[in-house]
Design a protein around this nucleic acid. Sequence first.
RNA 1: UGGGGUGUCGCCAAGCGGUAAGGCACAAGGUUUUGAUCCUUGCAUACCCAGGUUCGAAUCCUGGCACCCCAGCCA
Length: 566
Amino acid sequence: MTDGENTRPSNFIRHIIDEDLVTGKNDGCVATRFPPEPNGYLHIGHAKSIALNFGIANDYNGTCNLRFDDTNPHKENKEFVNAIMNDVHWLGFDWQDRLYFASDYFKQLYDYAVQLIKKNKAYVCDLNAEQIRAYRGTLTEPGKDSPYRERTVDENLELFARMRAGEFQDGACVLRAKIDMTSPNINLRDPAIYRIRHGVVHHQTGEAWCIYPMYDYTHCISDSIEGITHSLCTLEFEDHRPLYNWFLEELEVSCHPQQIEFSRLNLEYAVTSKRKLTELVDEGLVAGWDDPRMPTIAGLRRRGYTPRALRNFCQRIGVTKVDNIVEMAVLEDCIRTDLNETAARRMAVLHPLKVIITNYSESDVEELPAANHPQDEVMGTRVIQLSNEIYIDQHDFAEVPPKKFKRLTVGGEVRLRNAYVIRCDNVIKDAHGNIIELHCSYDADTLGKNPEDRKVKGVIHWVSAKHALQAEIRLYDRLFKHPTPDASDATKDGSDYKDLINSDSLRTLAHCYIEPSLAEAQAGEQFQFEREGYFCLDSMHLPGNVPVFNRVVTLRDTWAKIERKQ
RNA sequence: UGGGGUGUCGCCAAGCGGUAAGGCACAAGGUUUUGAUCCUUGCAUACCCAGGUUCGAAUCCUGGCACCCCAGCCA
């Protein structure tokens, strides 16, 4: 039910909008926006917000703008702008011609600030950062007025103009809203709304400005300018809402959007904070923003996740105000559900063990048809080659089999997927006792049919040793070994979330064998390697190089569960 | 006795005064040339706790308790 992309989710934000529609608020219009700051790549938490904002716009016949909240040029750049646009599109959402930057409004924002000063609702304050902090008071004690709070309107007007003209050094003064230094809500204790920043080149406005507006001031006005009806943001902005409303009321703008807060997504065994993701990248703890272990959109894409799976995930987790930590199993089920339906089946041997089929002619090669999907005939078939030498996986053979083992054992039989039943006659070992080869014999009367006199339970995958291609396969696992790496209980022993990185999160298998048809795989294309999992050809793959396949996710593994219990 | 929020199954989450949806996870069966998929079944006499209102409360009221967020010239 929650799987269908066509079913409308039910959540408190949609209830509010439904109510607004019946009361005729906003003339029945719905306008949302996705407002990222271009100071990093988007992560799965942003996907939730994107799906929410664009999803609502879509379902209510409204619009959703993409607006970059680019008021802090120190941390932002064009690479991030481009990466974000790319990721939103890739996820399947379109802002059409509604691409905006908060920096588009710098002039208007400046004029509004002048308006505020004229109303005696803003003043230039010469206190430095530490002094402002001291004057702010604490959570339980009120703050006290700045000595500059009662400057005249004219004086403030002149000072602010000089700030803009570049007459003051960074930090020399700020423009502050004049609200209430004794407010129990700290956000209302005369917040700074403009600061001075010399010597930075803004990625959109260049060096046109040396003063930059702050988030609280910018965001509500940007929303208002764009005619946003419902401004959706995360819970930590809840006590900024009075400030959001204060600016819009003082400025007497014609559009006053409603800010609604929802809880951000937390994913087990991952961090979803831009600060931390930036650290992982900057300190080289991962290979980059698109490292397949990263919970970034770019990382998930490189890992082999599909937009559809991610959209489905966002729908499944819902939207509430409750603090939550979603299990990785939900995400994994989403990609399995998608790929089970769409990925072609192939065979690949990850841990090769040579098998000689002793009664199979050395010069013979058979070309066997194999279905690309067991349930979907329209996906067609491909040809696989069989010869007297094949590779199977080391885990599919056991000299001393555990209970319920239905793979190959000495003297036992197993079916080669899409081919014949073989029996293991002999185990060849090296001087150290390591198994290096198996000698088997095949039953020629078992192609496409089961033997009548006996039951062969196991089926294993394989590739022809004479035909297989070499490949590197990268097995990815969760990046962190702790379910909540950034929670205080996980780090209270003084360890940092970075100490909780799973050293086994990437295992590279350099010498794997894959079936020849995989030579035609396209970069980024996903396959199911039967009995192993879903894999995708790395998007950086260049034709002619040894292919690298990334494991997207394993198959559900009932056998592993049984083994664990034993 | 600073302010703002949140509490429904292990994890998400519907529910909006008429007697606890769904998904994931888990468990047990069945089909199967993937120990996959698919199918069937089970899984909250109970909604943080305690009172109260009502014929009837997860939903309303009162009082507790627990947890989260806020003291950037970040967003």
